[in-house]
Amino acid sequence: MIRINNLTKKYSGTTVLDIPSLEIKKGESFGLVGNNGAGKTTMFRCILDLIRPNSGSVESKDEKVSGSEDWKIYTGSYLDDGFLIDFLTPEEYFKFVADVYGLQDGDLEQFYKDFGEFFNNEILGKKKLIREMSSGNRQKIGIAAALLPKPEILVLDEPFNSLDPSTQIRLKNLLKKLKSEEQMTMLISSHDLNHVTEVCERIVILHEGKIVQDKITGKETLKELEEYFAVNN
């Protein structure tokens, strides 16, 4: 589904990302962990064609993401606040997203129904602009908007951050369901080792822009990760 070849990104001489080769298969749930500055967000931005790598390329469905727009149709993403349009109300924002993906009003109603529990009555009908909402609620809006067009690929950067415990659990269940029922390909970065091992079947550790470990999640994975990060800090 997604293939990375010889990808490097440098900022003023320092290499912040260097991935010779990486392939993410269809339906795979891919977890990315690493300390601050490891290059997680940079990698996601390369995948979403938001930064131009110094070398190499990212392919989505065998087509390079730079120079193509096709991947946008089947990719949902939320990296940070910059993905939200802060002067809109949540409803206006969802309507906008639905429009650009050519969805009908019926789809949107269904979406509101599906996400009713996830929103927990804190998002819809509040007559508040997104910029006036708490960071947790903004995070919910961003994640929901990424899922609104029912994408085949989902890219989320630290989705559990600033969510309340109930929503964290709901999000985990939602992601698991999307994986098992829709075979959605998911790329999720997280600082929370518990969550990421629970949701993702494959974990990659990034350190100073390089992949240092790439493993299939098993019973021991959480322990191994904790040991790794206890030593390498």
Binding site: D49, E69, K72, L79, I85, D86, V100
Partner: peptide, 14 residues
């Protein structure tokens, strides 16, 4: 600029 990333990743033909 506040949401340029969103415009670039959503299904909008440049």
């Amino acid at each position: 600029s506040n949401y340029f990333d969103a415009l670039m990743t959503k299904n909008i033909d440049p």
